[in-house]
Design a protein around this nucleic acid. Structure first.
Lengths: 225, 225, 225, 225
DNA sequence: AATGAATGAGCCTTCATTCAT
DNA sequence: AATGAATGAAGGCTCATTCAT
């Protein structure tokens, strides 16, 4: 899970120590909601259960979030889309080679999203997105597009610095996204796609995918691999 | 979509002209159900809507299938699990090299399942399986296990004929299953995992995965790749 | 079960031997219906099951009886109310003493109704009568009132012949009816009112009730007991 | 009707004025449910109607009782089985002769159950028990068995104190239960078992049954009658 | 006369959301 | 701010009855 909480940060500024409980409410609700959305999906998660897991009453949930859909959006903002400004800055400041940057991006993605509960959100959107068009549009706009844009910037940097060949950038983005998504889905559906006993080694898989990709995009004189 | 209908075949034998309506019912219902399950998922598909799409009333659906869960199972049987006997025979009769057989299996899988509405069933099970344990168990027993067994037989053949190295067969099976599942999911969630404009070229992707796999499993003297 | 079938009698008059099957329909349906009404009650008996037990289709049932209520009425007519003319004649012809007649009435009631499936109809009416007012009214008019009238005639005979004291006849009728009903209910509800192992000896109980009653109503010079 | 309410008692302890509504709910619902179960039977009572009679909406009923069956069980517990501890104590403290105790038990039974709406529950179980096996088992365990045990204790006391002959106690219990059940059923079906104008005098009937029974079980030197 | 496919009103139960306290 | 009682629309399933063949 990402280290800081947006909503909580705002509230915390106004708070004193003894009131920690009250101000923690939204954060506790978001945390409980994330757990349950990941565990059961959007439709099958009951508002009351979210409230109960956060230790508050049903009414309180609706005090902070006007609907289940808004609760979901807040979960996504808190844990994913809200972090893009930071992530963008972080990668703008990257100083190494672009192949190294690409490796770093993929590892970071796995650490912050793939390996955490958040991978369940990706799975959820792929499964239930079509039943909740507004959520799908929100997720597309606030997560998918910024994420792809971040990746595009990496490839553009590589091309501009002469490290990458003049590739089709959208296609290249997809070549990263596809195996990452695949890895995240595997985590949440091992009973359907593989023998229960087998667990994929994500780090190796990612490293392999990265090198395969770099092999294809690096210019002959580049510092890839 | 598979070419012949099990239920319909049985009923058809008894039919006359004026009864075309009656005997077509189960097939029409299964067809409507498949459409809706794929479009909306299991929980979000309403019985009445299935009936309406098949042109009958709510009650009629329950005349043929005693519950929504049984309807789903019938859809799976009709379109997937019911075909394993044929598919098994088909592959037992395969006469080419095992690498070619593997390529053939993957292409066939894509043609008969992945590229059709049926890929939606796989997606459905991955997203809703945990909310409907009985369905999950049914799907696991009637689709996942026979499918894996079919693949295992291919690998065993390769090993026995000296075309493949003495590999970990379960792991090898998974190496096929994983990208196929990913491809199927992508079809149903293209807006989530990639830019809306980009469509994955399934055939190329499958071919690539096949060659990558063969590269790893073929014995040095084998005819792979 | 009473020996002859009214409906069947009418139909039989027109019938030939080889058509026995067709003409037996109504009787078979009534027989199946009686079984099921007794076993499950009126509301819980499904039309289809009646038809199935009679070996015909659902539609055929409604061909003979326009509704479930009419089917029930037909069952009652066939097995109970329809026999009152005969029973009345039978008792008008009785030649012994009135105390003997009373004993005979009670024994006969038990043999023909109480000891047979028909006691279940009495239980059914007591349980479900209030939910089906039309059936209750029908039963009241066609069974209860004629039955009470038959008993009243016995008491009137006793009084007129000087065998009985000038008693309150309605009250006397009730003194017979109560234990008979009680006995019939016991048969169908042994799990509720008594230990499953204990079974009441109906004949002794009836004899006892008869003598107790006669003890109270016989005039001092009467030939009771 | 029993004098105090179990559920209500517990809730009342926590209550304030404005909450009178809330705490009264379970009691109101149980009361409405008892009315309707007695009036229409279990199957024919619609959840919504229970709610409406209690002045709440359909959903509210399920807030307090998770299903119609549980509602019924709660009605039985509140009004019948929940009182056995008190009743047992009450009779353990009885100090008179055992024949008097038996007369008292029967009168009390009539006052607290037979003469109240609760006799309708007995009727309901006799008619619908076989259609709802779980309810039947519950009633058997929580009402029938404790009730019979109470009666058995009375007879054992009589035998131990030398007031009764060494009788078959199970048989004796049945000799009490049977006429009580009959009386209760009569109340709810007077149009079936007797002329509408005649109403059975329960007290006299009970007294008569008691003396008849005592006549049979009292030891020659006993203080019966 | 017989069939059995088809209907649709009716009932239990769930759950997101509201609102008086 | 917090509660949790209350609501009511929605959905799965049943079954008496109809009707085309």
């Amino acid at each position: 899970m990402p280290s800081s909480s947006f909503l909580a940060d705002k509230v915390r500024a106004v708070s004193a120590k003894r009131e920690r409980r009250k101000e923690a409410r939204p954060g506790e609700l978001l945390d409980a909601a994330l757990d349950l959305f990941v565990e059961k999906g959007f439709a099958a998660t009951r508002s009351e259960e979210v409230a109960a897991r956060a230790g508050v009453s049903k009414g309180t949930l609706f005090l902070y979030f006007p609907s289940k859909e808004e609760l979901f959006k807040a979960v996504v903002r808190e844990n994913m889309s809200g972090h893009f400004p930071d992530w963008n800055k972080e990668f703008e400041a990257f100083e190494g080679s672009t192949p190294d940057m690409l490796r770093h991006v993929m590892r970071t993605w796995w650490e912050r999203i793939g390996a955490t509960r958040l991978s369940g959100i990706t799975k959820l959107m792929m499964s239930e997105g079509s039943n909740f068009p507004e959520l799908a549009a929100f997720y597309q706009a606030e997560v998918v597009m910024p994420g792809h844009e971040l990746l595009r910037r990496v490839f553009r940097r590589g091309v501009e610095r002469g490290e990458f060949k003049p590739i089709d950038i959208d296609m290249a983005v997809y070549t990263i996204v596809a195996p990452m998504i695949f890895l995240m889905l595997s985590k949440h559906s091992s009973n359907i796609c593989m023998a229960p006993s087998i667990e994929l080694d994500a780090d190796k898989y990612i490293a392999l995918q990265a090198e395969t990709l770099l092999n294809g995009v690096c210019s002959p004189t580049g510092s890839g691999a």
